[in-house]
Nucleic acid binder design. Structure first.
Length: 330
DNA sequence: GTTGTTTGACCTACA
DNA sequence: CTGTAGGTCAAACAA
C-alpha cells in the first residue's frame, strides 16, 4: 500500500476540482494529506484532475513497514466496494482523463485500524472533520479526516502521532483488535529517532492528556527548536499540553519544502518504497542527507530514472527544481 | 456481549 | 472578559 492507498482516499469531485494532492508526512510523528485547490495553469484535467501528487510518504512507510509496495489485498478493506483506482494510473492521467472517482467512505486503508472518536463541523469551510485514533492498545496515533460536507469528498487527512506497532496483517478479520501483530514497539521506525522517543513519558501522565508522542513533530522545524521543546517538556504536564496545542498549528503550516529540510530518515524511508516527495512513483530512489559541515545544506542523490513525466508541481510554473534537473543529468 | 459510530457537551486556546 | 473554533469525551445507539 503506502502512497497508493493513501491517494486512493482522495475523492475527486466535480464541484471541487483537485489539481494537486499533497501528502506531506513526517516520519516521526505525523503526516498530512491535503488536497489543495486548483492550479489554474496546468492542463485542466477534466473536472477533477489530480495532476500532481507530492508525497513524502514517511508516515506511509511507518504505516506499512513490512508490506511490499504492491497492492496487498489483505490490506484493502471494505473500501473496495467502491471503484478503486489503480494508483499506477495516476501517472497516466492525461488531459482527457479524469482521475478515477473515489468516494471516501472509510478511514484511509492505510493498514491500521482506526476508531472514530469524534466529528466536528469545520466552521471555516464547508467540510466536517472526523477524528480517528488507532485502535491498537497502546498506540496513540491519530488522524483527522476532513471532507466536503455534502459531497463527502476528501479534503485533507492529517496524521498525528506515530504508530508504535506494525499494521495488523489482516484488516478484515481484525475482530479481536489489539491482538494481532505483535507490535514490536518501535520497529523499523523506532531506530530512526530514538532520541526523540526517549523523552516521551506518557505513562506518567493522565492517559487523556498525555502528550502522545508529540515530541517528534518538533523535528519539522529544526534541531534547536527540538532542544527547546525538550527542555520545556521537563517543566511539566501543562506545558506539554500547551506545546501539543501549539504543534497542532504547526501541522497546518507544513510544506513539502519544510519536509525536505527534515531528517533524512524521511526520505530514506520513502526511497525504499520507490516513492519520493516529488510525486514520482516509479522505482527511483532519492537519498537526502544534510551536509555535515553545513546544516542548512542538503545533499540529494537520485538513484534510478523516472519512467514518466514529471508531475506538475502546484504553484510552480517554472522549470523543474534544481534537484530534478540534477537528476536528469544522471 | 463486544466493538464501532454518532453526536451533544465540555474543555481549552486564541483573537 | 467574551465569543468562537478546534479537539476530545462519553453516553446512546447500531451492527
Amino acid at each position: 500500500m503506502s502512497h497508493q492507498d493513501v491517494v486512493e482516499t482522495v475523492a475527486a469531485h466535480d464541484e471541487c476540482p483537485i489539481s494537486s494532492v499533497d501528502l506531506t508526512a513526517d516520519s516521526v510523528s505525523q503526516s498530512i494529506l491535503s488536497v489543495s485547490r486548483p492550479v489554474p495553469s496546468q492542463q485542466s484535467l477534466g473536472d477533477c484532475p489530480i495532476s500532481f501528487v507530492d508525497l513524502i510518504p514517511a508516515s506511509v512507510v511507518q504505516a506499512m513497514p513490512s508490506v511490499s509496495p504492491q497492492k496487498s489485498p489483505e490490506l484493502v478493506p471494505e473500501v473496495n466496494s467502491l471503484s478503486k483506482p489503480e494508483m499506477g494510473e495516476q501517472k497516466t492521467l492525461g488531459p482527457d482523463m479524469k482521475a478515477t472517482q473515489v468516494v471516501f467512505k472509510a478511514p484511509t486503508p492505510d493498514g491500521y485500524n482506526w476508531r472514530k472518536y469524534g466529528q466536528k463541523q469545520v466552521k471555516s469551510s464547508e467540510s466536517n472533520r472526523s477524528y480517528y485514533r488507532c485502535t491498537y492498545i497502546s498506540c496513540h496515533a491519530k488522524k483527522k479526516v476532513e471532507r466536503c460536507d455534502h459531497s463527502s469528498r476528501l479534503v485533507e487527512i492529517i496524521y498525528k502521532g506515530r504508530h508504535n506497532h506494525d499494521p495488523p496483517r489482516k484488516v478484515r478479520s481484525f475482530k479481536g483488535r489489539k491482538l494481532i501483530s505483535s507490535a514490536e514497539s518501535g520497529g523499523a521506525t523506532a531506530t530512526l529517532d530514538r532520541s526523540v522517543q526517549k523523552p516521551v513519558k506518557s505513562d506518567s501522565f493522565k492517559l487523556k492528556k498525555e502528550t502522545r508522542n508529540v515530541m517528534p513533530k518538533q523535528q519539522l522545524h529544526n534541531l534547536n527548536e527540538n532542544v527547546k521543546f525538550k527542555a520545556k517538556e521537563a517543566l511539566g504536564h501543562e506545558t506539554i499540553e500547551k506545546q501539543r496545542k501549539r504543534e497542532r498549528n504547526v501541522v497546518f503550516s507544513i510544506t513539502p519544502i519544510k519536509t525536505v529540510k527534515e531528517p533524512k530518515v524521511v526520505v530514506q524511508a520513502a526511497g525504499d518504497l520507490g516513492i519520493s516527495s516529488d510525486g514520482y512513483r516509479s522505482p527511483v530512489r532519492k537519498h537526502v542527507e544534510r551536509a555535515s559541515e553545513d546544516a542548512s545544506t542538503i545533499i540529494i542523490t537520485y538513484e534510478g530514472k523516472h519512467d514518466h513525466d514529471m508531475p506538475v508541481p502546484k504553484k510552480r510554473h517554472g522549470p523543474p527544481s534544481i534537484t530534478l534537473a540534477a537528476h536528469k543529468q544522471n
